[in-house]
Amino acid sequence: MKIIKKIMSGVTALALACGLSLTASAELKAGDYKAYKGTGYLAKYEVLSVKDGKSTVKVTLKNTTKKKINNWAVRFANYADIEGVKNGKLFSPDYWMFRIIKDDGTNGSVAPNECVSFSFTMTDPGNSSDIPVGITVYSDLDKSNSVKDLNKTAFACYNGIDQILNDYKAKGVSFDECFKNGVFANLNSKDGMKTGFNYKYRSETDREINALASMFSRGNISVYVGRTEIDGEDTYFVQAKDNRTGKVGQYPRWTDGTAEWGTFDLDAPLYNKNYSESHLNSAARNVHESVEDYLNAEGLDYQSLLENDDFQAASKEGLKIDVKASLTGCDKIINDKLKFNYEGMIVYVSKMPSDYYSHSHLVTDFFVKTEDPATGKTGQYPQSELVLR
């Protein structure tokens, strides 16, 4: 108990050194605040004023490490429109549901035990904004990027590109035109686009992808968006490279960091990720839904599908998910559903035992089992808890 008290008193002392109290009031009004503690920093979010549909907030950071930090940035959830920032710059796109505010170029260096503050005013009709539950602080202290970080960066940017392409499609601009007309000019260049909180881009696309990449990888990072063909369809892929180590993350198809830069690499070893039971159960559910959709679209019943000798998922060996596989029928539907996130997993589809039913009372005639061959773990749908009739 004395040790716990000592730790808490130390945290409190650090907080009070910059006025960073560790409590917060429940309602948003002038004087409300909340303090946060993270690796290498303490932070305080304080409401300075609430008036005429606008709120002004001050955020203070304290460097609790023994090294000077540079190029800091803060991320927090905020649904209001930010009208102005003092001693900082809004880094994230205006339409994001969370905000990233970075240093203003003159206050980016913070010495050990020193504090830095910025403030912003936001529109707040009805005084309905909340104090963020948590915040994330970035700096140049953490420049190490694991292969997992790089793959996650590629995945986040892939989803960002997907939204951008959909927005252009709604405006009548095709996938092909986006690449030919320079929407991805920097991202599709030979060396890719440099990312980080110290980079500034004019293009809305570049700004959005830069913000996404900066949240997941730090240091000397480049992001590349390329075109490829997957199963006869024209599509795209994203890579994130740590220029210091040469490691490359990729999506689709997470790799072990050795993917060839600028090429959708289907030969590099997969990222060494063992699937959890949650992943396996989720994949099984996705397969079950895909098979049902296939049966409805083709006007088939499950019995005729399971009796089809060409249906690999119903065989003793099952169907191994492979992004490079060339399949037909329901096997293709299943593989397409899982191939980007569950490569290497094995899928089995079989008749539901007559004396079992799902605890969720799902009415179904077939059963899906998934297996991670590396660990032997399995998942299934309907869910694993089956009850006798």
Rank of each mutant, 00 (worst) to 15 (best):
L150G: 11
D256F: 10
T235E: 01
N281K: 14
F118D: 12
C330E: 06
M97K: 07
N296W: 08
K247S: 12
D322N: 12
N166W: 03
D103N: 15
S360Q: 11
G126I: 03
T64M: 04
A259M: 04
P353H: 06
F197K: 07
K6D: 12
N63F: 03
T39E: 11
L48I: 10
V173Q: 10
F264S: 01
K2G: 00
T205I: 08
M1L: 06
S174H: 02
Q303C: 08
L14W: 12
D355W: 10
T228F: 00
S315W: 06
K180M: 07
G172Y: 06
S139H: 11
N78M: 09
K51E: 15
T121F: 09
V248T: 00
T12M: 14
A26R: 05
F264N: 00
D301C: 00
T195C: 00
D103M: 15
F184T: 01
L306Y: 01
G379C: 15
G299V: 07
Y348H: 14
V74L: 09
E208Q: 08
G257A: 05
L14C: 13
L150Y: 05
W261Y: 10
G196W: 08
G344P: 13
D242Q: 07
V349D: 12
A35N: 02
V133A: 02
V11I: 14
G53A: 05
T12K: 14
F367V: 09
S9L: 12
N159C: 07
K247G: 03
S276Y: 03
T375Q: 02
Y201C: 04
G105F: 06
G329M: 03
Y275D: 10
T255P: 01
H361D: 12
S203K: 05
E233A: 00
A13P: 14
G38M: 00
I334M: 06
T375K: 12
S144I: 13
Y41S: 05
T228C: 03
G84E: 15
F91E: 06
L305M: 04
M345Q: 07
R218V: 04
I333P: 04
N145K: 06
V116D: 13
Y294L: 09
N63E: 11
D256G: 05
F366H: 10
P382K: 14
I221H: 03
K51G: 13
Y95C: 14
S358M: 05
F179G: 02
G376T: 05
E46G: 02
M345S: 08
Y36L: 02
G10E: 15
D309N: 14
V223E: 02
N186H: 11
A111I: 12
I135N: 01
E298W: 07
A17R: 15
D293P: 01
V291Q: 03
G172T: 08
G196Q: 08
G108L: 08
M97P: 07
R75V: 04
Y348W: 09
T12S: 14
D355H: 13
I321Y: 04
I131D: 02
L61Y: 04
T64S: 13
N296S: 12
